[in-house]
């Protein structure tokens, strides 16, 4: 019985101590397994010698902008929280693929306008934030 896939595991140090000793004892006796071990080791060395291919510039830089994260449905409380966050200093937002500065008064107006058609939206909460 030959070592078969234990030969690769032997090369990769993936055998436990007992299996490794048994493999070494078998290799002493078996020319066929020694030949296969040699050829598999050569292929393994060639694979591990393949040149590292450098990543193209910009491959990852666009991930944040090109592909938007999952878009949430409009949620009144989340909208109010977003306005509050803008008030405390988040001055930029994302529109399409480009970052553009937001005008705080426009954002508040848009949210208040949306509130008029959304019965669940707390207008007072937004206005209180906007009036600070």
């Amino acid at each position: 019985m030959h070592l078969e896939d234990r030969l690769s595991a032997y090369l990769d140090s993936e055998l436990d101590a007992t299996q490794q000793r048994q493999a070494e004892e078998h290799l002493v006796e078996c020319a066929e397994c020694r030949t296969e071990l040699s050829s598999v080791a050569e292929v393994r060395d060639q694979l591990r010698s393949l040149p590292v291919v450098e990543v193209r510039a910009g491959t990852f830089e666009d991930v944040a902008e090109v592909v938007p994260l999952r878009r949430a449905r409009f949620r009144p409380m989340a909208a109010a929280a977003a306005v509050a966050a803008l008030v405390v200093g988040v001055g930029f937002g994302v529109a399409g693929n480009q970052s553009v500065p937001l005008q705080l008064n426009q954002v508040v107006e848009q949210h208040v306008a949306r509130a008029s058609s959304d019965p669940g939206f707390n207008v007072l909460q937004v206005q209180a934030v906007a009036n600070r």
């Binding site: 078969e4 896939d5 234990r6 030969l7 690769s8 595991a9 990769d12 993936e14 296969e36 050829s39 598999v40 050569e42 292929v43 393994r44 060639q46 694979l47």
Partner: peptide
């Protein structure tokens, strides 16, 4: 995995 790695290497050897 062990089987796939070994058989894969043998197939590569044969192809080369």
């Amino acid at each position: 995995v062990r089987s796939r790695i070994h058989r894969g290497r043998l197939m590569l050897r044969d192809a080369l």
